[in-house]
Amino acid sequence: MTAKFFLLAAVAGIAAPAAAHNAWLLPSTTVLSDTVQSVTVDMGASTAPFEPNHQPLPAENVKVWAPDGSMGKVENASRGRYRSTFDVKIDKPGTWRIGMENNGIGGTFKVNGEPWMVGRRRGPAPAPAPAPGAAPGAPPAGQGMMPPPGAPAGAPGAGGPGAGGSGAGGPAGAPSGRPQIDPSHIVATVDEIPAGATDLALTETVGRNEFFVTAGEPSDALLKPTGKGLEFVPVTLPTDLVSNEPGQFRFLVDGKPAAGLEVEVIPGGRRYKERDQTQKLKTDAQGLLTVNWPGAGFYWLNASLTDEKPSNPKAAKRRMSYTATLEVLAP
C-alpha cells in the first residue's frame, strides 16, 4: 500500500500536472495563409481541457519544431494565475509541431530497508544540493513538465488523464496525513541511486503533448514516425480536419501498430454543451483510430499505455502518453 503510494507519488512528481487535471495547449489558430504571422497559445492544466481554472504550465518547457527540421522559438511567454501564454512566429511554410515532451524515471527503492525514492523532492533540499524545481526551466531530472509544488499523485504522463488521487493543488510540501519520505532519501535521477539499493520499483515515463500549425501547404517531414515509444501518425493531416469528415490517425508503439489502444477525445467548450461529448475510442488491429467529430472546434485527444519495455534497464515499466490539441473546422 505505502509502496504503491510512493510509486504513484514519485511518478506523478515527475510528470503530472495534478490528479485528474489535464495539461492542454490552446493555439489561436492552426491554419495560416502566409509566413508573416504568429500563433498565440494558452497553456494550463485543468479538469476540462482549455478551461483556465486551475494551474498554468511553464511555457519554458515548450519546444517548437519547424517544418524544415530547425527549432523555432517561444516568444512573449508569461504566466498568469490559471494559464500561461506564449507566441510562436510561424515564419516558414509547412506543418509545425509545437508542444512539450517529458521523459523521466520515478519510483521507489530501499537502502538498508529504508524507503527511498527517485523523483521530485518535496520540501527543502538537503544542503549542499540545489533546490530542485526552484528555478523555472531547470527541472532536476530532465523532465519536460514539472507540476506545481505539492501537486498530488495520480496522473503520470504529459497530461495523461488522472488515475485517481484527491486533494488537488495543495500547498508546497506534503499535506498532513500524506506519507512522507525523508528528504535526504530522495534522489533526482536514477544515476544517483546508491549502490546496494534493493526493491527497485521504477517506472519510466515518456510523454508528448502538442498541437500542429500549417502555413501554406502542409508538409509531412515532421509527421514521420521515429519507431520509438507511443507515436501519433496522422493519416488525415491534423490541420485538415473538417467536422463532416472523419479524422484518421495511426498510433504506433515502437514502430508497430498500437492495436486496441484506448483514445479519449474531448471537445472544448464543455460549459456550453448540454451533454459531455467525450468519446472513448479504440484503435483497430492496424492501430488506426477513426474519429467522428460531433462538431467544429478544438479537441483534446489523449492516449496512454503502460508496458514493460523501458529503455532504462533499472526501470520495470514504461508509461507512455500522447496528447494532441486538434482544430476541426466547419465544412
Binding site: 495560416l32 495563409s33 502566409d34 508573416v36 501554406g216 501547404e217 502542409p218 473538417v242 473546422l329 465544412p331
Partner: peptide, 22 residues
C-alpha cells in the same frame, strides 16, 4: 505590411484546403 491581404485567404477555408494553399 504586417497584415497583408493574403492573411485572410485561409478564411475561405474550404477553398484554402482544397487547393488555395497550393
Amino acid at each position: 505590411g504586417n497584415e497583408p491581404g493574403t492573411k485572410w485567404l485561409a478564411d475561405l477555408r474550404t477553398w484554402w484546403r482544397k487547393g488555395g494553399r497550393s
